[in-house]
Design a protein around this nucleic acid. Structure first.
Length: 565
RNA sequence: GCGCCCGUAGCUCAGCCGGAUAGAGCAGCGGACUUCUAAUCCGCAGGUCACAGGUUCGAAUCCUGUCGGGCGUACCA
């Protein structure tokens, strides 16, 4: 099926060929004209700025290059019915109504999927996200990451990747022991002061303690049953996390425990690191005071500081198993690895990548590993910033947030209206509102409105045409119809870009634009006219295409598209 | 101090692998419901794209520096 993506590729190839004919060897070998959208829509639907880009190389005026390029191109470009050279040398093109209408017919009948490029080609991707340690409930910070990671996973799936979702957690470190000890204190009914420094005081620990008493009675002691406390706490915490995630409709294919890597996989990795030399000495070196303690010479890799990876007592610091974990992911053969991290991981992630590049080669790592780092969220309630501190339970949990907002869909959508690297204010009051202030309802309302039109039309005995024929285009040649079709036409292209750049916020941007486009169309054009079933049917097709497109895009974000509101 | 991210309308943010007159929502002002859902639409107003240099035919976009904010800078994870 020839859709918007193919159309642009075809036109780009045609221009490339005609440029070759005109300029021969002067044309750079790797130059491929780019098909873009004109800044001002009055100029046309799509544009090509190749003449401007080439002006310096070919030493000709952009307008001269443009005329040369068009002279040697076929008079008829696919899907285009008007070409002009404007301004300093832009080639502007108008998409033919026939092309737009037939695309919309395809969209209405088959949905968006048929027009999305198969970028993944069935290759496999592993998306790691959340990866919070099992020490308590997930918080607002994890919420953004969970939503982002899930949207990236779905986005990759929509362009043909086979995606696995993985949650990595550290269960070998001291935090787990602290959690176990905190549980023991609650179990034994000791005072708060018995909870160790850095321990966990949240109410949930007390609940676990009560449950432990019901299961095992009151005879357990930390000294003799420490492992039981720890493993019980770990499994309860994981249960809590799974339940929090399911509130958002998120399910992982695998929960990968750090402990699976210790000690064999980690020691293998250390052995591998030991053979690496840097310009400033071996990558791995022993501490001058403690022979068991190992340092990574990260400064030799352009990183700000060397780091300890193995302590004198033989235990590992965070980075070490993380390196082993990433090696394991590479070994498992995924074509693409995506890490979704919070801003607090910037440094460690860069350290891990630097080491991976030494072990696997820069190219391998650059090609297969993509890291998405998101900034933190500030919650606003009644116009005030909510201070968050993990200590003393002064944080807003994910479940509380979803509950307060009142809808998982709204929570998910709002987190996705900003690009990952932007700081974000999440206004709980605005999110709660069922009005135009709420971007989700704005989009869903457009969808429900179309559903209403389809119902009205059905009652009048008017339906979407079963087959495409040329007369449809003639009935959709109006300004508002064309504008809506043009918007719809750009969706596959933009979706492909969103997936390629791992930027789901582009989907919410598109949804907002599509919804505005539809609402405007609706305001100006009466769709169902009992006295003119032909044109009504054509407009209905356009509505159905828009409905399908909105529903499919909402689907990428995992948000519901209701038929009634 | 050092590293990464951010700085665009009163507020929240798009746009950023250079392109034509910098966009949207909210807030403000003024309009549109006997007609398919007014949870909507139309119009007005609102900008030295933090600042200063540089590269370029062309810079919000790339480079350098300055200022401001966030995060990190652990033998926590």
């Amino acid at each position: 099926m020839s859709g918007p993506v193919e159309l642009r590729n075809e036109i780009a190839a045609i221009f490339r060929e005609s440029l070759e004919k005109t300029w021969g060897d002067d044309l750079p070998d790797d130059f491929l004209p780019e098909i873009t959208v004109p800044g001002n829509r009055d100029f046309g639907d799509i544009a090509c700025n190749a003449p401007l880009q080439l002006a310096g190389v070919l030493k000709k005026s952009p307008r001269a290059i443009a005329s040369g390029m068009l002279e040697h191109a076929p008079a008829c470009l696919p899907g285009v019915d008007r070409v002009s050279v404007d301004g300093p040398g832009f080639v502007n093109m108008r998409l033919s109504t026939e092309y737009l209408a037939s695309y919309c017919f395809g969209l209405a009948s088959g949905g968006l999927s048929g027009y999305l490029p198969d970028a993944g080609e069935g290759r496999t991707a592993l998306v790691e996200y959340v990866s919070s340690n099992p020490t308590g409930p997930l918080t607002v910070g994890h919420c953004r990451q969970a939503v982002l990671g899930e949207a990236i996973s779905r986005l990759l799936e929509t362009v043909g990747w086979r995606v696995s979702r993985e949650y990595y957690f550290n269960d070998g470190g001291r935090q787990m022991e602290l959690l176990g000890r905190s549980l023991a204190v609650r179990y034994l009914g000791g005072p708060d002061s018995d909870i160790p420094e850095g321990g966990y005081r949240g109410g949930y620990v007390k609940e676990w303690a009560d449950e432990l008493k019901r299961l095992h009675g009151g005879d357990l002691r930390w000294e003799s049953h420490g492992a039981l406390f720890v493993s019980f706490a770990r499994s309860k915490a994981m249960e809590m996390i799974r339940s929090d995630l399911s509130l958002l409709g998120i399910h992982f294919d695998r929960f990968f425990a750090e402990s699976e890597l210790i000690p064999d996989r980690v020691e293998e990795t250390i052995a591998g690191l030991e053979s690496i030399k840097t310009g400033e000495g071996p990558l791995l070196y022993r501490d001058s005071l403690y022979p068991e303690k190992l340092w990574l010479r990260l400064t030799a890799l352009g990183r700000p500081a060397d780091r300890v990876i193995k302590r004198e007592d033989g235990s590992y610091t965070y980075r070490m198993p993380d390196i082993a974990y990433h090696l394991d992911k590479f070994d498992r053969g995924y074509d693409l690895l995506v890490d979704v991290f919070g801003a607090d991981h910037i440094d460690t992630s860069a350290d891990v990548i630097a080491v991976l590049k030494e072990l696997l080669g820069s190219r391998e790592v650059d090609e297969r590993l993509k890291v998405v780092i998101h900034q933190f969220v500030t919650l606003l309630r009644s116009g005030k910033r909510i201070k968050m501190s993990t200590r003393a339970g002064e944080y807003v949990t994910l479940s509380r947030l979803v509950k307060e907002v009142g809808s998982a869909d709204v929570t998910r959508y709002i987190f996705l209206t900003r690009k990952a690297e932007a700081h974000m204010d999440f206004d709980i009051d605005a999110a709660r509102m069922e009005s135009s202030e709420n971007p989700v309802y704005y989009v869903q309302y457009a969808h429900a409105r179309i559903a209403g039109i389809l119902r009205t039309a059905a009652e009048a005995g008017i339906g979407v045409p079963g087959e495409y024929d040329e007369t449809l285009a003639a009935m959709l040649d109006g300004k508002h119809e064309r504008e809506l079709m043009r918007l719809l036409e750009s969706v596959p292209v933009e979706t492909a870009l969103a997936a390629e750049s791992l930027e789901p916020h582009r989907i919410t941007e598109m949804l907002a634009a599509l919804s505005t486009g539809f609402h405007r169309f609706y305001q100006h054009v009466r769709v169902v006219d009992r006295d003119a079933p032909g044109p009504s049917s054509a407009r209905l097709m356009l509505c159905a295409a828009c409905k399908r497109c909105i529903a499919d895009l909402l689907g990428v974000l995992g948000v519901d598209a209701p038929d009634r509101m």
